[in-house]
Design a protein around this nucleic acid. Sequence first.
DNA 1: CCAACCGTATTACTCCTATAATACAGTTAT
DNA 2: ATAACTGTATTATAGGAGTAATACGGTTGG
Lengths: 133, 133
Amino acid sequence: MVSFAAFPADGEGPIYLRIVRFVRAGVAAGTIVDGDEMPSRRVVSALLGVNPNTVQKAYRLLEDEGLIVSRSGAKSYASVTPETVEAVRRKLQAEEVSRVVSALRRSGMEKAAALEQISRLWDEDEQEGGEKS
Amino acid sequence: MVSFAAFPADGEGPIYLRIVRFVRAGVAAGTIVDGDEMPSRRVVSALLGVNPNTVQKAYRLLEDEGLIVSRSGAKSYASVTPETVEAVRRKLQAEEVSRVVSALRRSGMEKAAALEQISRLWDEDEQEGGEKS
DNA sequence: CCAACCGTATTACTCCTATAATACAGTTAT
DNA sequence: ATAACTGTATTATAGGAGTAATACGGTTGG
C-alpha cells in the first residue's frame, strides 16, 4: 500500500499538483513499485484535510501519465514499468524547464534572447552571483 | 515621440505585459532614446483598443524599472540612460538566465536537451494541467 | 444479496487576475 | 482663466483556477 505519511505538510503550488509530484517522486525513488495499491481518494483526502475531488484531480493526472490504473468502483493501483519510470524522469525535468520558462516569460524576455543567453552561460559555472539591484 | 505603430497585433500573455515588453525591446534596440515623449495612456489605449488603465498598468511597471518618468498631469517621457539600460539588461539576463542555467544543470540536464525543451515549451507554458482528456 | 466501500460526474463557491468604467486631480497652451 | 489635455485612484466586471458539496453508479467481500 502506497503511504502518504511522508507527504510534506508545507509545499508550493496547488494541493493536487503536490500530490502528483509526491507520487512521481515515489516512483522515481523506487518507494512505489508496480502493482502497489493506492489509498482511495477519500482516505487521502481525509489525511490531507481536503476534498476527495482534489485528490481525484491528482489521480486523474497520474492516470494520464500511466502511473496508476483505476477501475470504476474498484481500487487503484500503481503501474510502474521501466517505461513509466523513464516518463516520470522526463516529466520531472520538463516541469523544471516549465517553471524556468514561465519565470523568463514573466520577466518579459524574448524567446530568442533567452535561448541565446542560456546557451552562452551554460558552461560558465561561476556565474551565479545572486546579488540584486 | 515613441511610436506604437509597430506594436504587434497578436501576441501572447496579457496586454499590459505585452506593452511592457514592447517598450523594453525598443529601449534595448535603441529605437527609444532618452527624453523621447511617450504617447499618453489614452492615446495608446485608443490605438490598441483597450482601457487607459490597462496602459497605465504597463506604464507603472515601466516607471518602476526606471524606463519612463511621469509627472501627474504632464506628459511622460522615456528615461533611457546607461544606468536604466544596464538595469534592464541585468534584470533580464544576468538574474534570470543564470538562475535558469544553474537550475537546469542541477537537475542533470544536457545542454542540448535543455535548449530544445525550452524552445518547445516556450509557447505552451501551461503548468502541466491538461493534455488528453 | 447488500452493505460498505470504491471511482466518477456535476455543480457551486471562492479567490485572483486582467480589464473596464468612472471619477478625480494636475499641467499647459491659449 | 479655462479648455483640453495629462496622470492617477477607486471601484466594478468577466473569466479562470483551485477546491468543495453533493449525488450517482460500479465493485467486492461476507
